[in-house]
Amino acid sequence: MPAWLWIVIVVVVLLLIGGILVYNRLVALRNRVDNGWSQIDVQLRRRYDLIPNLVETVQGYATHERELFEHVTEARARAMDANAVPDQAQAENQVTRGLRQLLAVAENYPDLKANENFLALQEELTGTESKIAYARQFYNDQVMRLNTLIGSFPSNLVAKVFGFRDREFFDIEDPARGPSVVDFPG
């Protein structure tokens, strides 16, 4: 065989190996993004489950805050119906804001703050809020990596051939980070 044929074969083999490596990396990152999304989903669901309980507990003490309760319940319903990533993020912001208000209101009722059930719910909520934040952090990190790989040369060629698409970031307000109001009552 002539020398040029050998060179062509070697180049083709190297390109194939490179392509396979990039493809595997893309698949791994896509799975991590999906996994990250399902983590967020799990935590958001946990928060949906907590809200009716919390509203009910606070309602027993703070009878004059009807409007706020309705607002939180509505925000929850809207968030549960949301589909696309940006819509969901938007709706979750409403929930977060409502819950913060609810806990701020609870500050005015000493009996409520002494209620053991409320304290347990508050810890669960704080924990879930920070888990949402951490899940979002993980998800966004992985999305950034995936998008970088899809966007940069030469991996963008492989991505195009196999139809890998940019993913959307999940932008919500940072709820429980640093010394937060939710965390240290009183």
Binding site: Y134, A135, F138
Partner: peptide
């Protein structure tokens, strides 16, 4: 230990 468990779970989510 709800607080400890919540923190460990949250950070392991962040760490993947």
């Amino acid at each position: 230990q709800p607080r400890l468990h919540n923190i460990v779970e949250g950070l392991s989510i962040a760490a993947g």
